[in-house]
Write a protein that binds this DNA or RNA. Structure first.
Ligand code: SF4
Ligand code: SF4
Lengths: 160, 160
DNA sequence: ATTATTATAGATCTTTATTGTCCATAATAA
DNA sequence: TTATTATGGACAATAAAGATCTATAATAAT
């Protein structure tokens, strides 16, 4: 299990947009050059990011992309979920098996929406783990990375 | 990004073994029947679990599988990593891109083994998140699920 | 020792997901 | 109006997951 390359690209693209906030929009050409990915492929990713409200896009001369909201309001989780989707990390495929009887509470079969507390014991652990992951990714914003990069940078300057 | 079905099968197989500890070995036939998976496919999974020292296998009459160590010493992470592997959740593919300069410390390119503290800023976040996930999965053992299932069960009996 | 039983390893196939390209179209600012 | 830029659909290549079959090796019971 790994994050896809697209997630990698999306994160770096967003970070670059965050870094170029003051300037004009950033076109797909520039972006693709900096990330080292083809324009066609990257544009698919940017399109998704726009559909999910992470970036704004404007066509035409001097068009391009910009962040749809301040970088401190864009979390890693936000970006990752655009690409990876929002399904659960663990989805049981055999809830009709014999074992299920032992491990699941009554009513746990139709567990998707309404009874979060009634998940089976396996899902309880797996979903718990996923929550830990999400929590951490929610706590880290694009801005926090930008800040740290700037800190490092100025520290380097002081050294010299 | 999702856990594979194989991980699902592996977890359930191990749980069943833990549940049948007192009795004899559990053959692939019984196991496959209970999980609702083909024998051939499941045997591949069991083989991996054996190679990684999670279960013991004995061929021949009355052979089968049993846990290689007590269920309270088998964590969810143990089982999951057998199937999903041990690569990092996030592996950067373009550390030669222009962006890399900004985000990575010096020496961060050859980051794999020796400089865990020097990872780049993106990896720092992503690896941190992975650690959260792993920590949680490490804290939950097969036995803990068994215990809880038993608790529920006896609670149900009391009700009746 | 023989035999029936069981796990193992290899080859192979299908299906699904990821990664990637190309092109025609729509939108926009100059 | 036009040059420019993003968008969406179709498509292809590759890789990974899911699954099956078969021949072989190991073992316990006889
Ligand atoms: S116990 Fe949970 S994970 Fe297992 S089969 Fe039932 S629903 Fe699925
Ligand atoms: S900054 Fe980190 S994630 Fe980004 S390219 Fe460099 S090594 Fe990869």
């Amino acid at each position: 299990m790994q994050f896809s390359k697209s997630t990698d690209y999306a994160l770096h693209a967003i970070i670059h947009l965050g870094h170029s906030q003051r300037c004009n929009n950033v076109g797909i050409r520039e972006l693709s050059g900096i990330l080292g990915v083809s324009e066609s492929y990257l544009s698919k990713i940017m399109s998704k990011l726009r559909q999910d409200g992470i970036v704004r896009a404007v066509p035409g001369v001097n068009g391009g992309y910009e962040l749809a909201r301040p970088a401190d309001q864009i979390t890693f989780l936000d970006v990752i979920q655009v690409i990876e989707g929002r399904q659960q990390l663990f989805e049981c495929s055999n809830s009709s098996s014999q074992q299920h009887q032992l491990l699941a509470e009554e009513g746990a079969v139709q567990r998707d929406q309404k009874y979060p507390g009634k998940a089976c014991l396996v899902e309880k652990v797996m979903n718990g783990a996923e929550q830990q992951l999400h929590q951490y990714l929610r706590e880290h914003t694009i801005q926090s990375v930008l800040d740290e990069a700037f800190k490092r940078c100025s520290h380097d300057v002081n050294k010299k």
